[in-house]
């Protein structure tokens, strides 16, 4: 989970430093910025979700292997 968070944060930081450079204009409609902004974070959150699923699969794969290895020893203990 921690790794996911770090990865997501890194993606965010890169995305905002390259796409979103601040410049203050008092009369800009903040709504239009928000609208576009969603498209940007949607991509990043999408990657986050994909990463989550990916790690979940890897974890499931290894836990599958370990549980297979562990199961005989568990049964002998019983």
């Amino acid at each position: 989970m921690k790794r996911n968070r770090l990865f997501l944060l890194a993606v965010m930081v890169i995305a905002f430093n390259t796409v979103m450079l601040p410049s203050a204009h008092a009369y800009l409609d903040p709504g239009s910025g928000s609208y576009i902004f969603q498209a940007v974070i949607a991509g990043a959150l999408g990657i986050g979700v994909a990463v989550k699923v990916f790690w979940g699969r890897i974890a499931a794969f290894f836990s599958g292997i370990f549980s297979k290895n562990e199961s005989p020893s568990t049964s002998t203990e019983e």
């Binding site: 979103m20 450079l21 410049s23 409609d29 903040p30 239009s32 910025g33 928000s34």
Partner: peptide, 14 residues
């Protein structure tokens, strides 16, 4: 980050 994006307004499109 949202606040920064707002400051760019409609020009903030990718």
């Amino acid at each position: 980050s949202h606040a920064k994006a707002q400051l760019r307004g409609g020009d903030g499109r990718p």
